[in-house]
Amino acid sequence: RSLKHLCRLKIRKCMGRLHLRCPVFMSFLPLPNRLKAYVLY
């Protein structure tokens, strides 16, 4: 697996499933929209 994929998995694990599904939580993250979309992919 690529480093990019492993990073996405780690971020998702740290955030938890409930936060990933909450659009309000995701909108408050201080991340560029492209990065938010990548994490959610």
Results as ranks from 00 to 15, higher is better:
residue 15 M to K: 01
residue 12 R to G: 05
residue 15 M to A: 06
residue 19 H to K: 12
residue 14 C to T: 12
residue 28 F to N: 10
residue 4 K to C: 07
residue 20 L to F: 09
residue 26 M to D: 10
residue 31 L to E: 00
residue 34 R to Y: 07
residue 4 K to A: 11
residue 24 V to S: 14
residue 7 C to K: 02
residue 13 K to I: 08
residue 14 C to S: 07
residue 22 C to R: 05
residue 8 R to G: 10
residue 22 C to W: 13
residue 7 C to L: 15
residue 2 S to V: 04
residue 36 K to M: 03
residue 21 R to I: 13
residue 38 Y to M: 03
residue 18 L to C: 05
residue 3 L to N: 02
residue 26 M to Y: 06
residue 27 S to W: 07
residue 2 S to W: 08
residue 21 R to D: 07
residue 38 Y to T: 03
residue 15 M to I: 12
residue 29 L to H: 00
residue 16 G to L: 12
residue 23 P to S: 14
residue 10 K to P: 04
residue 3 L to K: 02
residue 19 H to F: 08
residue 17 R to E: 12
residue 17 R to D: 09
residue 8 R to P: 11
residue 34 R to V: 03
residue 29 L to N: 03
residue 30 P to S: 15
residue 25 F to M: 09
residue 1 R to N: 12
residue 18 L to K: 01
residue 31 L to T: 03
residue 20 L to I: 04
residue 5 H to N: 08
residue 10 K to S: 04
residue 26 M to P: 10
residue 38 Y to K: 03
residue 39 V to K: 00
residue 38 Y to H: 02
residue 7 C to Q: 02
residue 16 G to W: 09
residue 28 F to P: 04
residue 2 S to R: 07
residue 21 R to W: 14
residue 2 S to Q: 10
residue 9 L to A: 10
residue 9 L to H: 08
residue 7 C to T: 06
residue 15 M to H: 01
residue 12 R to W: 06
residue 29 L to Y: 02
residue 31 L to M: 05
residue 37 A to T: 09
residue 30 P to F: 06
residue 41 Y to S: 15
residue 34 R to F: 07
residue 37 A to G: 05
residue 16 G to P: 08
residue 3 L to H: 00
residue 37 A to C: 08
residue 26 M to I: 09
residue 18 L to V: 03
residue 36 K to A: 03
residue 32 P to M: 13
residue 7 C to A: 11
residue 11 I to T: 01
residue 30 P to D: 14
residue 7 C to F: 11
residue 16 G to Q: 15
residue 14 C to V: 15
residue 19 H to T: 06
residue 4 K to N: 04
residue 12 R to L: 09
residue 25 F to C: 03
residue 13 K to G: 11
residue 27 S to Q: 08
residue 8 R to Y: 14
residue 33 N to D: 11
residue 4 K to W: 11
residue 16 G to S: 13
residue 11 I to V: 07
residue 33 N to L: 03
residue 5 H to V: 00
residue 18 L to N: 00
residue 5 H to A: 07
residue 33 N to Q: 12
residue 22 C to Y: 07
residue 31 L to R: 04
residue 33 N to A: 13
residue 20 L to V: 06
residue 6 L to S: 13
residue 17 R to P: 09
residue 10 K to H: 02
residue 32 P to K: 06
residue 34 R to Q: 03
residue 2 S to E: 09
residue 24 V to T: 13
residue 33 N to W: 02
residue 8 R to E: 08
residue 23 P to M: 14
residue 35 L to G: 00
residue 19 H to S: 07
residue 11 I to H: 01
residue 29 L to R: 04
residue 13 K to A: 10
residue 7 C to P: 02
residue 13 K to Q: 12
residue 23 P to T: 14
residue 24 V to F: 15
residue 27 S to M: 00
residue 26 M to E: 13
residue 35 L to V: 08
residue 9 L to G: 08
residue 19 H to N: 08
residue 37 A to W: 02
residue 35 L to R: 00
residue 36 K to R: 05
residue 36 K to Y: 04
residue 17 R to M: 11
residue 29 L to V: 04
residue 23 P to D: 14
residue 12 R to M: 12
residue 20 L to S: 08
residue 10 K to T: 11
residue 9 L to W: 06
residue 25 F to A: 06
residue 12 R to C: 05
residue 13 K to P: 03
residue 20 L to Q: 08
residue 8 R to W: 15
residue 28 F to S: 09
residue 29 L to K: 05
residue 32 P to C: 14
residue 16 G to F: 07
residue 36 K to E: 01
residue 41 Y to C: 12
residue 35 L to H: 00
residue 34 R to K: 07
residue 36 K to N: 00
residue 17 R to F: 15
residue 33 N to Y: 02
residue 30 P to A: 15
residue 26 M to K: 09
residue 40 L to R: 11
residue 31 L to A: 05
residue 26 M to G: 11
residue 10 K to G: 09
residue 21 R to S: 07
residue 41 Y to H: 12
residue 17 R to Y: 15
residue 20 L to Y: 01
residue 38 Y to G: 02
residue 25 F to W: 11
residue 28 F to I: 10
residue 38 Y to V: 02
residue 28 F to C: 06
